[in-house]
Design a protein around this nucleic acid. Structure first.
Lengths: 183, 183
DNA sequence: GCGCCAAGTCAACAAGTGTTGACTTTTTTC
DNA sequence: GAAAAAAGTCAACACTTGTTGACTTGGCGC
């Protein structure tokens, strides 16, 4: 049994599932309230409106484990966190598909850009240290997101049905090369 | 001066500019007809509707130069075609930003997936040849799209304002590693 | 002149959007 | 139990969406 959720929590859960997988403008508040089983008006009551509800889903982004690992294991953790099995049928909502799904949106693009820069790129660069750490961090993120996108969004046959280990091997190949840049 | 365009062409041009940069569902037919300076009804008249107009923009996708280069220069061409300077202010419409902008769209996702698989991944694998050519092709596309996305969409500071040569150097680093996979 | 046909215009439609205010029900507080 | 506050319901709003049909215009052959 699922824990008893308040109406506010039901809205947040449904909003996260939908916003994070379909993108902000491809989801209506009636989609969300329908999935949550609550009245439409409560979105405005509790969150001030659709934008407020979306913003609220951003605050529940869990920290990225890679940024809290030992310095020597940053890359292993990063690769591992992008190698989880993925089933297109159950499009699970995770922070990275959320970024991919909303970066295009004209209303949310700036917000997402800021999030990636300050919550991913900069902390990762600091964690990596050494020469050109910001360049290497950017390339590492490019590798991670590139493979994730080819798997989960474009669903290339060569990447679609691989085991986590196989995905990790491929991701590692690119990430290691990225971290070698400038050296 | 621009060549005289028929109304049909004006619609196609405006539709390509808007659909390819903002994504299908973030553009209304009134946005397009407004930009083209023609009446709203003509979209349905000439293209059967919004979907038909979008589909029509797909047929004007130019071939990817990399797929027609000498076998030895495929990767150089591929890297070069992703290293063009980019100005966010003039969000130019090109086939690759088009794929990124529309892959999330619930109405167009399947169409885009099919396009990437059959028009990019498979031809590239055939062109590359050798062991695991489909794996290497997938990783190369991941590298190319990953860096393009970090530049043009997420606009990471470390990649935003680089010269084409600097971009090419970074892209090459990842692409070469991708092509080494399994070897 | 007349008829004809394609091209373009205009207003309206049905459906979906986010949001609001008035109302009823439920829960809490004294 | 009565009063007050919170939670939830309902219908309507103003707006935008894609699409349609009736209408007007312009150029051509005869």
């Amino acid at each position: 049994m699922t824990k008893t959720h308040s109406t506010r929590d039901k809205l947040l859960d449904a909003a996260r599932d939908l916003f994070w997988t379909r993108g902000y403008s491809n989801v209506s508040v009636r989609d969300i309230t329908g999935a949550a089983g609550v009245d439409v008006a409560l979105v405005s009551r509790y969150f001030g409106g659709k934008q407020g509800l979306f913003e609220a889903t951003l605050t529940v982004i869990p920290h990225w484990p890679a940024l809290e690992a030992d310095d020597a294991q940053v890359l292993e953790e990063a690769v591992a966190s992008f190698s989880h099995p993925y089933d297109p049928a159950t499009e699970e909502a995770n922070p990275f598909t959320m970024l991919l799904a909303n970066i295009i949106d004209p209303e949310m693009g700036d917000r997402i850009r800021d999030l990636v820069q300050t919550a991913l790129a900069e902390p990762l660069a600091k964690k990596l240290g050494g020469d050109r750490s910001d360049d290497r961090a950017a390339l590492i993120l490019a590798a991670l997101f590139g493979i994730a996108m080819m798997r989960k969004n474009f669903r290339l046959k060569a990447l679609k049905d691989l085991s986590p280990d196989d995905i990790a091997a491929r991701t590692d190949q690119l990430v290691q090369a990225a971290n070698r840049f400038g050296g």
